[in-house]
Design a protein around this nucleic acid. Structure first.
Length: 590
RNA sequence: CGGGCUGUGGCGCAGUUUGGUAGCGCACUGCACUGGGGGUGCAGGGGUCGUGGGUUCAAAUCCCGCCAGCCCGACCA
């Protein structure tokens, strides 16, 4: 490709609306262009990268026997009503009407369509297992698109779906996808982790996420030295055994005036009711937080959550575990409606579904039978100490709502947890039978009776991958593409204006292309060498060949974009040397 | 949806406080020079100052409404 012909305009300044490196660089280097908030056009360079990533995904999906097809992005409402997602998806769903006023939508994901397609065409266990996929444009009307291509309202996703007669088949399909994803992400060349995920609103059981490790990521995950890894929302707490409380002293109600917060409470306890063994700590207290759950049907239900006083309630984690209900703050009006709740002094004695208050009470897994707590006494300025779980109060169950902190023990005993940020690149789910049931996907089994099909759903953010790779692969000069996704194999710069230079360049381009190497050839005549070098580094092709002043001595330069190292090569060896460069090193990383 | 900020040639910005000829850099066009790190000079083209209304002799600038965009928090490939 001749650069003089390429539809490209590099920018000297960062776009004002860009914040993260991938967004700035992709716009500056002429890969993408903003069309609307969260909606981007792919310019020739960008499209080449996108196509390369798609090809890798396609190869690996085909390799596990998945068949590619494609559904429309413009979809009828009915299937999404059948699964209730027309409602549940909420404002993130792009809805529109056709000229007759019929409701339609732009597909945010295609479980319904694939399920119905299988239902339409298959009716026997003999047709299964089946794996289908598509690489297709998705639409989600995100409340806040950001970071350019990393989080758009229109994006390209590979989504695949497995259909099996039983759980064993589903498990196998899931594992095959998992392996394929590992191969795909290894080939794409960025650092990633596989973490346990919450299957959340999608329903189903097993679920893992592939997160690209990146400080600009929006997901927080944990990992331990022993190999445990989970999304922070899915982390479980290492809970201790129930303890014997036969010798525990009786609970004692004490005056603690002016102690609406945990800090003030600890100070007053240490001053007025010191422990014999050690000072009171925040973790000795039991903090009871009241929230209002809003169920999908609009029903509002107060919920009490008990966590150790040294921890905050992590609203995201809480919401994950009460889904599909949403969490709202407990308002002043709510407190007025529940006079038994004394703000700042709420204790578990009056909580619980069976208690007079009727408020469901869920506690942190650290609150096990036999543990003793300092907590509210349900009257202003009063607390109770030595309140023992299982003896003095009960609860309706446990909930993973407390914040996760670095150093917390991993639930599998594999050591202290470390927290890091990531970008969700892939997600694999065992959906089970939720969609098949709602849409009536059944086939006849060997015994001639109808069986509901077990499904899995698996996604990869293809367009997002472009941004993720740049996030990990750039320096202060521009992008540094991993070879396997670079828009071109070689960027050839003519640094000079002597006709012999262009002749030599034309010659080399011809030889390289004949050998199957794609070349971006900077043939611009009136552009100074400095500009060409800057453009080459911004665009980020991993191998830069320079034909310039060395030509009179019969040498050209071969530069490595990543290391910025250059070596001189005799012109007669140019083809061999460049081919070695392009094909030589193993393809991963940048 | 809550909080903060911004709308001025293709891009990045100044000008708004104190109303008075719309400016700068990049990019673009032509010519000349230069030719290994976004080079120099000369000459050019291109702007409903987001939008509607108001105040005024006069509005990018002041007032009111609306719209759009960005960033920070709650949702997701």
């Amino acid at each position: 490709m001749r650069m003089s012909q390429l539809f490209l305009q590099t920018l000297r300044d960062d776009p004002a609306d860009a914040e993260v490196p991938s967004h700035k660089l992709l716009v500056r280097a002429g890969y993408i262009r903003r069309a609307a908030p969260g909606v981007y056009s792919w310019l020739p360079l960008g499209l080449r990268v996108l196509n390369k990533i798609e090809a890798i995904v396609r190869e690996e999906m085909d390799a596990i026997g998945a068949q590619e097809m494609r559904f429309p992005a413009l979809l009828p409402k009915e299937p999404y009503e059948a699964t209730n997602r027309w409602e549940e998806y909420g404002p993130n769903l792009f809805r529109l009407k056709d000229r007759r006023g019929v409701d339609m939508l732009l597909g945010p994901t295609h479980e319904e369509m694939f399920t119905l397609a299988v239902k339409d065409m298959y009716s026997s266990y003999k047709d299964l297992p089946a794996k289908l996929y598509q690489i297709q444009t998705k639409y989600r009307d995100e409340a806040r698109p950001r970071a350019g291509i990393l989080r758009g309202r229109e994006f390209i996703m590979k989504d695949s779906y497995s259909f099996d007669i039983d759980d064993a088949g589903l498990e196998q399909a899931y594992q095959e996808h998992r392996k394929a994803y590992i191969r795909i992400f290894d080939r794409l060349g960025f650092e990633y982790v596989i973490v346990k995920a919450d299957s959340g609103a999608m329903g189903g059981s097993a679920s893992e996420e592939f997160l690209a490790v990146s400080s600009t990521g929006e997901d927080t995950f944990v990992r331990s030295p022993g190999g445990y890894a989970a999304n922070v929302e899915a982390v479980t707490t290492l809970s201790s055994e129930a303890r014997d409380y036969a010798d525990a002293p009786a609970a004692q109600e004490v005056d603690t005036p002016g102690t609406p917060t945990i800090d003030t409470l600890v100070d007053v306890l240490n001053a007025n009711h010191p422990r014999t063994d050690r000072p009171w700590q925040a973790s000795d207290t039991l903090k009871n937080v009241i929230v209002m759950l809003v169920h999908p049907d609009g029903r509002r239900e107060p919920l009490a959550v008990g966590v150790p006083g040294d921890r905050e309630v992590d609203e995201k984690r809480l919401e994950t575990h009460v889904a599909p209900a949403e969490v709202e703050a407990f308002t002043d009006a709510d407190f007025e409606a529940n006079p038994a709740l004394v703000r700042g002094y709420i204790g578990p004695q009056i909580l619980g579904a069976d208690s007079p208050s009727g408020i469901r009470y869920l506690v942190d897994p650290r609150v096990v039978s036999g543990t003793s707590w300092a907590t509210g006494a349900n009257s202003e300025g009063r607390h109770v100490i030595g309140l023992v779980a299982g003896r003095d109060f009960d609860f309706d169950g446990t909930i993973e709502a407390a914040e996760v902190r670095p150093g917390d023990p991993a639930p599998d005993g594999s050591g202290p947890l470390e927290l890091a940020r990531g970008i969700e690149m892939g997600h694999i789910f065992q959906l089970g039978r939720k969609y098949a049931e709602r849409l009536g996907l059944q086939v006849l089994n060997e015994n001639g009776s109808l069986t509901t099909v077990a499904m899995g759903s698996y996604g990869i953010g293809v367009s997002r991958a472009v941004g993720v790779i740049v996030e990990g692969c750039h320096d202060d000069r521009g992008i540094i593409w991993p070879r396997q996704v670079s828009p071109f194999d070689v960027h050839l710069v003519v640094a000079g204006k002597a006709p012999e230079m262009f002749d030599a360049a034309e010659n080399l381009v011809g030889e390289l292309e004949a050998a199957g190497v794609s070349v971006l050839y900077d043939d611009r005549v009136k552009v100074s060498p400095g500009v060409k070098f800057k453009d080459a580094e911004l665009i980020g092709v991993p191998t830069i060949v320079v034909i310039g002043k060395g030509l009179v001595d019969g040498v050209i330069e071969v530069k490595d974009r990543a290391s910025n190292s250059a070596r001189s090569v005799p012109i007669e060896n140019a083809l061999t040397e460049v081919l070695g460069e392009v094909r030589g090193e193993s393809s991963s990383g940048c």
